[in-house]
Nucleic acid binder design. Structure first.
Lengths: 139, 139
DNA sequence: CTTGATCCTCTAGTGACTAGAGAGATTACG
DNA sequence: CGTAATCTCTCTAGTCACTAGAGGATCAAG
């Protein structure tokens, strides 16, 4: 039922020291320990940790992830902030999807054009450079 | 025609020391200088820098960006590697889009549900946690 | 030709890990 | 039960991609 930090690392595909680091900065809660002070975890820790990993891979900062986890941790809190946080994240997510789609199209074109031996007119830079300043105001 | 590093920073929306840093690590080419050793840039620098900024925002590592810029810099190189690089990036981009879409749906649901005063069943974690290990093998 | 903004280099600090040392805990086998 | 192999513990230091600051030079406007 309860497993070690190494097992958790394997299950969530995150390195052991990273887990300890996440505990230190408060992303993962402090967990219970054995007599000899070794950490033991249950299944929820796997989901939470896997979530953090994915969110990081998607480029969210730890602070943003913290707020997302807060929504999860306290589902009964009044909507005001939660709604605001969710909306801000949504906006960011939409922008990222749009940018990635633009890049996707360009890469696709490059691969297509590749059939004839040369990359040819490569417009990767223009694709991403020309997205007229989409400043995200939340941090 | 030629402008300063501060002007470049404004146009590409990147901080001045970051530009110098990019030059140092070879993402931005060394540029010409004034008598007094101050850097001067032309328009292409703006596009390149804006591209780097966007790519970084999308979570690409500097090394990945370097390879993308290489495609741009040498459009006549034989297809073999270029094609491979483009394909690897495309795969990654597709995965990111998929993950972001999943997160998007969840956030949307949360905001919808918010109308009635509570967040209720929040499944943000499950959304991103359950994406069965999508190891990217390129670095 | 001065003055204030901008630029130079260099060193050091930040966030988010990642690696390593040295010591203690746990588990698996005989 | 003993002991060897394999974790795990804490702590310090290193990495990557910036970011900030000191101390001084240069530039452009008046």
């Amino acid at each position: 039922m309860a497993f070690s930090i190494g097992e958790l690392a394997r299950r969530a595909d995150v390195k052991v020291p990273t887990i300890r680091y996440y505990e230190q900065i408060g992303l993962m809660p402090e967990t219970f320990r054995t007599e000899g002070q070794q950490r033991r975890y249950g299944k929820p820790a796997v989901a939470r940790l896997a979530f953090i990993r994915h969110a990081r891979e998607l480029g969210f900062e730890v602070d943003a992830i913290r707020t997302l986890l807060l929504l999860q941790d306290e589902p009964d809190q009044p909507c005001a902030q939660a709604d605001q946080i969710a909306k801000a994240r949504l906006k960011e997510v939409d922008q990222r999807i749009a940018s990635l789609n633009a890049l996707r199209r360009e890469l696709h074109k490059m691969i297509e054009g590749c059939a004839c031996g040369r990359i040819g007119e490569c417009r990767v830079i223009e694709t991403l450079a020309d997205q007229t300043h989409s400043h995200r105001e939340w941090k």
